[in-house]
Amino acid sequence: MLVVRLDRVFALCYRYFLVLSRSSFRVMDIVFWPVMDLLVWGFVSSYFAKSGGVVSPAVSFLVGGIIFFNVLYRAQQSISVSFLEDLWSRNLLSIFVSPITVAEFVSATYVVGVAQSVTVTIIMSLMASLLYAFDIFSMSWYLIPLFVNLLVMGWWLGLGTTAFILRYGYQAEALAWAVPFLLQPVSAVFYPVSVLPTALQAIAWLLPSTYVFEGMRNILQGGADSTSTLYLVKAALFNLLYWTVTVVFFGKMLSRARERGSLAKIVV
């Protein structure tokens, strides 16, 4: 599982980029919807700010939340939707019976996830700068741990989703789109954790994304200090824990799928 040959990873990345670049549906999915989100919610919050109903940093919080949530969403989607696309095009069997390791397969989807997330972040940040005077670079070096933490969370969420699809087949495919949005309300993307009911707050503090978004708001309010650093360190530790658990879970699900024949059923 841990052997990774870069030429094979490159081969899969090359294929993903060709497939993506020729699919208007996927390009739309990756660029169009995030841009629409940014336009609609950005203007809504600008309107509230102008009409005096919202304090000024709220626009930044919302725009930052939209941009950074897309990092997580793209990273998760790159893994689970790439897997589903191979299933739908009946190509997965040819991949699974080639001498590619699971680590190589997953690495390629990680690379694609990074590329998609970076692209979407650049586009959205430019737009946010032009439309809402949102300066993503005001977060200085904190940008890197914010981005990386969400990327890693997207990776383990994507791997976990794929594990369920492997084990339960097509009936689990809706998870590929649903999982990030299931976590969104308790990740405090657009509002502070303190807004949530106590029980949900307890759940929220178990998610790395919560620390990232709390940290982002703290930084945007000028609090680039030890509190923000602590948030990001906690996010990293939770990510490390969940990523390790997900890798083990994926291995077990793959093994179960081989035992129960569900791997053969979905790829054939």
Binding site: R15, L18, S89, R90, L93, S94, V268
Partner: peptide, 15 residues
């Protein structure tokens, strides 16, 4: 050292 072909598998259609 092995390979496989089947009438029931395909390759990405837009490549």
């Amino acid at each position: 050292r092995t390979n496989f072909s089947s009438a029931y598998v395909a390759m990405p259609p837009n490549l």
